[in-house]
Structure formats: C-alpha cells, structure tokens
Design a protein around this nucleic acid. Structure first.
Lengths: 215, 215
DNA sequence: ACCTGAACACCGTTCAAGT
DNA sequence: ACCTGAACACCGTTCAAGT
C-alpha cells in the first residue's frame, strides 16, 4: 500500500481543502499529516513550518483570483461595479480573507482592481496625487467594509446594544446631547439590523460621487 | 508568604496587563497563573475558561472608552471630527481592537459615537431611514478603515506589489485595459506608501459630503 | 533526497482531592 | 468557598536515525 510520494503540491492541496471545509482553525500540522497519511515531520520537509505553509496557501489563492472588469455608463457607476466585484471575490473566499488580511496581502490581492479603478478615476478627469487618493480611498473603503461585514456575520448577537441608544442615557453624564427628538422612523431604522448589500452600494456610490466630482 | 486571596478582579487586571505589554498571544492560562503566583486551575474557578476571560476583558475596556464629542462649524466637519475621535480611541487600544472585532462588539463600542453622528446627520436635514443609512455608512467606514490601517502597520512589506502595477502586465491576458497612460505623478503617488492620517480625513469628508448633501 | 518515531516544550481543560 | 496537582488530549518543532 505505498502511497504516491508526498509532494509540496499535495500538501498545499490537502491544506487548502482542510481550510475550505473546516476553517483555518482546523489546519494543524498533525491533522494535516493524518489527512495525508504521512508522519507529521514529512510536511516540514516539503513546506517548512506552519507559518510558511500558510504563506504559500495564501499566495496560491491570491493568484487564483480573477480579474475585475468595470461595467456601467458613468464613471461613478463603473467604480461602484468594480467595488462590488472586489467585494464578491473577497466573499467567495470567506476563510482566506482573514488569512490574507493577517499577512498584509490585501492590497496585492487587488492589483487588478486597482488598475481598473485608476482607469475610471482618470476617465472622470482626476490626475496625479488626487487620482491616487481617490483610488486608495475606494480600496480602503471596500476592504474595510468587507472586514466589518464578515465579522458582523460571525457574531449575530450584535444588535441588542443598538436599542439602548434610544433609552435615556441612565448612568451617563448629563452633558450627552439629546438626539433624535421625534424621529421614530430613524429610531426604527437603526434598531433594525443593517442590510449590508444595500449599505455597501450606497456607501461606495456616495464616496465615489464626492471624489470624482473634483475632476 | 500567603499571597492576598485571588479575586476575579485581580485575574482580569493581570490578564489586561499581559495583553497590554505582550499582545493577546501572550495571554495563556498557564502564563497568567505564573504571573499571579497561583495554580492554573484557580483561574478557572474565578473567570471560567479562557474564552470567558477574554469576553470579560473586552467588556471591561469597551466600557472604559470615553465619550466622543463633535467639533467644527459645518455638519460635515463635525462628522469628520467624530470619526477622527472614533479612530483615535480605537488606536489607543491597539491590542483590544482585534479582540473587540472578533467578538462582534465594535458597534456596541461606538454607541456614544453613534449618538453624536445621529445629531449631526439630523442637523444636516436628513430624516428617517436616510439618516440611519448615513450614520451606519460612516460607522462602517471608520471601523473598516482602522482595521485595514492597523493590518498595514503590522506587515510593512506591503508596497512591493504596488510597483508592479506600472509594469506591462506580463503573464496576464491581453484583455487587461491599458491604464494611466502618461500620468507619472499618479504612478509616483501610488508607488509611495499611503499616508493613512490624510487618507482617513479625506475619505470621511468625501463620504460625509455626499451623504449630507441629500438633506 | 525523502521519510520516520521519539522527544521537548508548550497549550486548554477536567476532575478528584484537599482545606 | 476556594485552591491544588495530576492527568488528558491536544499543539508546533527539532533531531538523530533510517532508507
């Protein structure tokens, strides 16, 4: 029953499967060895230590990420479509995004998207440092949004606090300004959980509108 | 040499110190016990398991966070000042923010800031669901930005990829649109590392301008 | 060149036993 | 009510030894 000889590629494949199916927490060297039917120590020979294994894994999926193409008529709509594409790609790799983030590779991951954003920003008439700022603002916005969003999904017991907002601030100092006097629709809207999809589009569009208006 | 009896408060204090000085990774039950001069198992009696200890720790510092007051003349400037305050508070607890984030408490952490934002958004004339969207958009923007920013700081080997953007896309398909034809200032700006402080203010101001303009 | 088991230094957690 | 040590089931990593 000699197994096919272990390769670096096979190790990465098994590791990726483990992460995909059971999350990054399930990726232990010993469990991986079990999955591969080898001794733990063999893995070290092929991919170095655990940290290097994770690096390779991340590198791999970053390169697998597809290009992002703009769609829409106005530059603002095209920027929004690129942002939506970035978000979609991030969300398609729910486990990886955290690992990419921890490794500081989020920007490299979005080089193609950056290229697309540059084109749109220039089409809107922005040049030089101002154009660069606009591109970066959108990139930060998108990545940041997805990070917050993903976290929100993982721990759904978020909203209880949001209701308190409308009770009198009991323990707090009296210098807290009175807010939302007589706007029950606002209060209700904030009490409801946010619709991330809508909020995302709305935010990116607002940001893009303001930034591109300078062109 | 009988030590003063162990209390829940003492455990939390020691744990907080450990995190503050050596990061969350240093907070192990055994090391904590060592620091306190007790058996590991005593900790369990006082605070439950490690997860509950972290919960309590986070809860603690979330409540310690000060109120945030708006400053400035226009609603936009006042929103920007609140956002800056949120960012400052987050950055003052560099280790905690990750823990808060993982526990999905970021929003609760910012209830006072939300109250301030509601006031400004209403001052700009927004009402109901539209006002709620504006508030949430800013909140997401700020928290997301700080998350991305913090990650960037932790792994400074980020920029190498950004240079590649301006080389001909060698391996990539020919369908990649040509970008930034003849804008060396843009290329240079994107090659330089971003100035987060500037980018933050710029982004929040742009977002606030567009959102508040609807009022 | 590739794979192995043994060993080291860590983890979090449970539990029966002490006072 | 509070604290303890022993024990269990895990970790990542090193290393000398095998083929």
């Amino acid at each position: 029953m000699t197994r096919s000889p272990l390769t670096r590629e096979a190790v990465l494949e098994a590791a990726a499967a483990l992460v995909r199916e059971h999350g990054p927490g399930a990726l232990t060297m010993r469990r991986l060895a079990g999955e591969l039917g080898t001794a733990v120590t063999s893995i070290y020979w092929h991919v170095g230590n655990r940290e290097q294994l994770l690096d390779a894994l991340v590198e791999r999926t970053v390169q697998d990420m597809g290009a992002i193409r703009a769609a829409g008529r106005t530059p603002v709509e095209r920027v929004v479509s690129v942002a939506a594409g970035m978000r979609r790609e991030l969300r398609e790799h729910p486990h990886l995004i955290g690992m990419v983030h921890e490794r500081g590779l989020t920007e490299r991951m979005f080089l193609p998207a950056q290229r697309a954003l540059v084109a749109e920003v220039r089409a809107a008439g922005l040049r030089g440092a101002r154009a660069a700022d606009a591109v970066r603002a959108v990139q930060f916005q998108v990545v940041g949004f997805v990070l917050v969003e993903r976290n929100r999904e993982r721990s759904p017991v978020q909203s209880p606090g949001e209701g308190e907002l409308w009770d009198p601030p009991q323990g707090s100092a009296a210098d807290a300004p009175a807010t939302a006097p007589g706007d029950p629709a606002l209060a209700r809207a904030l009490a409801r959980p946010a619709d991330p999809e809508r909020l995302f589009t709305l935010s990116v569009r607002a940001l893009a509108e303001a930034l591109l208006a300078q062109g």
